[in-house]
Amino acid sequence: MTSAHTEPAAAHRPGVSGWSSRAIVTVIVAVLVLFFAIPMIWLLFATTKSARRLIVSNPFAPGSAGDLSTNWSQLFDFQDGAVTTWMANSALYAIGALAITLLASIPAGYALALTEFPFRRLLLVLTLVVMLIPNTALVLPIFLELNVVGLIGSPLSVILPMSFFPFGVYLTYIYFSTSIPRDLLAAARIDGCREFQVFTKVALPLAAPIVALVAFFSFVQNWNNFFLPFVMLPSSDGYPVQVGLTSLLASTPAFNPSSAGAQSVQLPTLALATVVSVLPVLIVFLVSQRFLVAGMTAGGTKD
């Protein structure tokens, strides 16, 4: 979608008038912009400094490429390359769960929106209710449940619970019930499509936007999930990077003086770890901002 779609003509906007109110609002907004931007910008600069320069130099002066590469090697040498393992784990968990989420929620959303079957309404209400339950609330019982079947510590113990993503089903349901004309499906049936073909040949090809939207939300949530892997995965080999960060933090003398030793992590290295840990999500965010805003407003302009 084009940006013209999301932004109405400027001439129709109310302009802020009045000198003093404008000044006050400008100051408030400027302060908030600094609040949002400073930590991000500082973080990027911090990764290019040595531990000493981080403290003595201007926070917003760039460091050197040499220091960046020192920090980089310290980070990836930590515990014989643990960070690489954690990133790979995060990717496995996030993408594995994302795949199952799509497999489960796209057909389910379609069935709820465009077919008729007993318990359809019940299932819809249930989806809405479960959506409101914070996902950490169920982590402890899920732990006990997976403990019974002996899955604790296995990648499946985080992939499977994360694949249950009622919000994705709800989004798909909304999309199919508002964006696909029923006449189109009826026409396909008259042309001799069987029910299953109506789904695969007509609905699925039109579902690209919703697949992207569900994939975005699912991936970001999976990647950032902390509590579930924290509880399910006892061994460092299985940590996703978000949980791995706690190991790095525990080895940083600046925050944990008892940790000084061969494996200790300097502050700039920890800063670099923070950047590396969010890099995939950051890329997804950068790529998807435009389509997300478009998708978000499209729902409202349809009626």
Binding site: F36, F226, L245, A271, S277, V278, L282, Q289
Partner: peptide, 15 residues
């Protein structure tokens, strides 16, 4: 305003 959202969870706390 939107970009810090990418740093959810442990990463934002660390920062």
């Amino acid at each position: 305003f939107y970009l810090p959202g990418a740093l959810a969870g442990a990463s934002s706390v660390l920062l």
